[in-house]
């Protein structure tokens, strides 16, 4: 039982991290039908920005964590908006394929910029940013960081849920994702709404990048690809375009992977995990929370 609970916590923590990244993919896709391939690299960028900003913020003492988090999230939000303005907005009327190429290119530019600025060596993420230490319940040990990750996951999910359903901007996002052209005709400000979507995706992704850095200590300029792909799969699993879907998709992927390694076979964990996901998608092609797509001809 202890082992089971421990694995549950392991899986939830890992899944939450994927969920933070998956959110950025799913929100952008919901509105623009675009897979923002540069998103994984934005997440990496957040981790590297934290490496630079954290030592400067240490002078502020106990507030260092808050200052660093805020500074990094704000910077990444700004870069995400710039990314949209430079790489995607001019192509909004162009075929989807051009947008995808632009996204891949933007990802490469960000990745290489990280390499040129911070170097190609793996970097150690600052240890003093998040509280270190372990909470122990009988045989289960939970790091404070895992607790923070889980709490943040719930907090982000609730905030976004209220934001999307109760605010004007949120309803505009919903309208745009339901029917882009009709919403536009009804007077929804497309440019501002798209900007806000990139802002939210970038901000939550930045949070994810820093939590990944803190959890696994080493960050490399190329790590965005691996996490990006896994988060992208989580987004599809949850139903791409659905915000709760991204979070639950992440959790499901994290839990499946963890329980496969723990109870089936660590050597087969990846194979078994993705096999289960394929089976799930056969029965629910639009993911857990996805709308079924009926296209009128």
């Amino acid at each position: 039982m202890d082992i089971f609970s421990q694995q549950l916590i392991n899986g939830l923590t890992y899944g939450s991290l994927l969920g933070f990244i998956a959110l950025g993919y799913t929100m952008v896709y919901g509105i623009l039908n675009l897979i923002n391939f540069a998103h994984g690299d934005m997440v990496t960028l957040a981790a590297f920005l934290a490496i630079t900003i954290a030592p400067l913020a240490v002078a502020a003492g106990t507030l260092a964590m808050i200052i660093t988090l805020a500074a990094v999230v704000v910077s990444v939000c700004i870069i995400a908006i710039l990314l949209e303005k430079i790489a995607y907005k001019p192509l909004r009327a162009a075929p989807r394929l051009s947008l995808i190429v632009s996204a891949l290119g933007a990802g490469m530019v960000i990745k290489n910029a990280i390499m040129l600025i911070w170097g190609a060596n793996p970097r150690i993420f600052p240890r003093n940013l998040f509280p270190a230490g372990l909470a122990k319940f009988s045989d289960i040990s939970v790091s404070y960081l895992s607790v923070i990750i889980l709490l943040l996951n719930i907090l982000v999910m609730l905030t976004l849920y209220i934001f999307i359903n109760k605010t004007r901007v949120g309803i505009a996002i919903k309208a745009l994702s339901t029917d882009y052209s009709v919403a536009e005709l009804m007077g929804v400000n497309v440019n501002n709404t798209v900007m806000i979507v990139f802002l939210i995706g970038g901000g939550v992704g930045a949070l994810g990048g820093m939590l990944i850095g803190a959890s696994y200590t080493t960050v490399t300029f190329s790590m965005g690809f691996d996490y990006g792909i896994k988060a992208f799969i989580a987004a599809i699993l949850g139903g791409i375009g659905s915000i709760p879907g991204a979070m639950f998709g992440g959790l499901l992927l994290g839990l499946t992977y963890t329980f496969c390694s723990g109870y089936v076979s660590s050597a087969w964990a990846n194979t078994v995990t993705y096999l289960l996901l394929i089976i799930l998608l056969i029965f629910r092609p639009n993911g857990l929370f996805g709308r079924s797509l009926v296209q009128k001809v």
């Binding site: 082992i3 421990q6 694995q7 392991n10 899986g11 923590t13 890992y14 990944i212 959890s215 696994y216 080493t218 691996d226 992977y257 963890t258 329980f259 496969c260 390694s261 723990g262 109870y263 660590s266 964990a269 990846n270």
Partner: peptide, 13 residues
């Protein structure tokens, strides 16, 4: 998996 960073599942086992 050397590309992964989370090995807690295996270690818990």
């Amino acid at each position: 998996d050397a590309n992964a960073q989370d090995f807690k599942a295996v270690l818990t086992k």
